[in-house]
Design a binder for these strands. Structure first.
Lengths: 223, 223
DNA sequence: GTGCTGCCTTAAGGCCTTATTAATACCACC
DNA sequence: GGTGGTATTAATAAGGCCTTAAGGCAGCAC
C-alpha cells in the first residue's frame, strides 16, 4: 500500500512510517499542507494520512481542494483536535475517516486497510469490452479465446485492467510489474509490445492505448 | 440512503431512526444477529449499522458471513465495547468503521454518509456546455465526439475547465502547462491555437474566449 | 551434461507525435 | 499610422514510442 503522510511532527511521522513499513506499506511525507497538496496532486496514493493543524495550509483546506479537483484518494484525518465540530467539518469537506491522536498503531493500520479495501475491486473477475481477466487464475480471454500471456505481460495487463478506463503512468506499471528492481525503459517497451501482440493484434480493434507523455490506458475507444 | 440497523436496544434503535429519518434516510431494523443477517442477505442496503453484542449471533459473525457470501455493503459497527482487540477483530472480519457508544447522532450520520459516498461511483468528470472532460482518463469530448488533444493542450484545457467560467491569466496557464520551465509567449500562443483548432473549430460556436490583457476563459457565451 | 523452450533483457534504427522557433498577419486602441 | 497584444502558419527540432533482432538465463526433458 502506498501512503502519503502529511504531518508536521517529524517524530510522529517517523514513528508511523516505521510501523507502516513493517506492515509492508510504502510511505511518502509532506511536512506542511501546501507540499502535501502538491504531492497528492502529482503522485497517486492508495491512502492519505492528513494532520489537521499544519503549517501553511490546514488539513481541511488540503482535502477540500483535492476533492474539488476530482481527487478521491481515501483520506484519514489524524489529529489531536477531538471536538465534534472539527470532526463534522472534516467529513463535510470530504475526509473518509477521522482518528484522534494518540492512536495505537495497529488500530491506525486497521483503519487504513479498511479504507484501502473499499477502494479495491471486490471481484476476482473483470471484463473490459470482450476482454475478461480472471485474477485468481492469472489468465485472460478475449472474445472467449484464451490469451497467451507471459508473467510480466499479465502483471501489466492486471494493473491496466484494475484501473480501467483510467490512465496509468509508465512508472506505475513498471513498479507493478517489476516490484523489486528498476527496469530499463526499452525493456518495458518490448514487454508492452509483446502484450499488445497478444491482446490487441489478433482482434479487430485495440484496447490498449498510448497517451504520449502520460501513460497507457485500457478501454474500448468508441468511434 | 437506505440503512439497516441491527441493534437489540429498542430505545436506541428508535432514537437513531428518528434522527436518520429526519436526515432523509430510510431505516430497517433487526433486533438480533440472525435476523440481521437474513435481512442483509435478502435486501440491498446502502449501509448497515451493526451492534456487536447481539442476541443469537454476535456482530462479528454477521459481518464475517456477509463478506464470505460476497456481500460488501459498508458496515459501521456501533458498540459499547471499546477495547483495541475488539476494534481490530472488527476490521479483520471486514467492517468499514467502528464507532463506540455513545456517539452524538450528527457524528454517526457524518460517518454513515462518508461510507456511502465512497461506495458511489466517483464520476470525476466535468461538463461545460457540450464539452465534457474526463480527468482521470485525460480525454475530452464535445457533442459526444472525442477531441484529440496533445499533452500540453490537455493541461491548458484542464485548468480552464476547473476554473470555468472564471477568467484565468496567461501566466497561470503557462505555469500549469509548463511547471518546470518558463515558456516563450509565442509558444504558448501556438499551443493555444492548436487547442482551439481541436476544441472550437469543428463546432458551431467557440467556448474558449480571449479577454485581452487579462487572460482566457472557458464558457458558453450566450447571445 | 546437452539441447531445448520460453521468457527476460539489451541494443539500435526508424517513425510519428509533439514542442519550439520564427516570421507574418490581424485588430483594437491611442 | 503606430503600438501592444494576439492569431495564424510553416518549418525545424526534439522526444517518446514502436519495432525488430539477437543474446542471456533459467527450467526441463532426455
Amino acid at each position: 500500500m502506498n501512503i502519503l503522510i502529511v504531518e508536521d511532527d517529524a517524530d510522529l511521522a517517523a514513528a508511523m512510517s516505521d510501523y507502516l513499513l513493517l506492515q509492508g506499506a510504502e510511505c511518502d511525507f509532506a511536512y506542511h499542507g501546501e507540499s502535501g497538496l502538491i504531492l497528492a496532486q502529482e503522485c497517486r496514493f492508495d491512502v492519505i494520512i492528513l494532520d489537521l493543524m499544519l503549517p501553511k495550509m490546514r488539513g481541511f483546506e488540503v482535502c477540500k481542494q483535492l476533492r474539488q479537483q476530482g481527487n478521491f484518494t481515501p483520506i484519514l484525518m489524524l489529529t489531536a483536535c477531538d471536538t465534534n465540530t472539527d470532526q463534522l467539518t472534516g467529513f463535510q469537506v470530504g475526509i473518509d475517516d477521522y482518528v484522534v491522536k494518540p492512536c495505537p498503531m495497529p488500530l491506525l493500520w486497521a483503519r487504513l486497510q479498511a479504507l484501502h479495501r473499499r477502494d479495491q475491486p471486490q471481484t476476482d473477475q473483470l471484463s473490459i469490452d470482450t476482454l475478461t481477466l480472471y485474477f485468481k487464475e492469472l489468465r485472460a480471454t478475449r472474445e472467449g479465446d484464451e490469451i497467451k500471456l507471459t508473467p510480466t505481460g499479465w502483471k501489466i495487463l492486471e494493473l491496466l485492467a484494475q484501473r480501467s478506463p483510467e490512465v496509468v503512468s509508465r512508472t506505475e506499471l513498471e513498479d507493478h510489474a517489476w516490484p523489486d528492481s528498476d527496469v530499463d525503459a526499452g525493456n518495458f517497451n518490448v514487454q508492452l509490445h509483446q502484450l499488445r501482440k497478444a491482446v490487441d493484434k489478433p482482434f479487430a480493434y485495440p484496447l490498449i492505448h498510448t497517451l504520449v507523455g502520460t501513460g497507457l490506458c485500457l478501454r474500448k475507444k468508441d468511434g
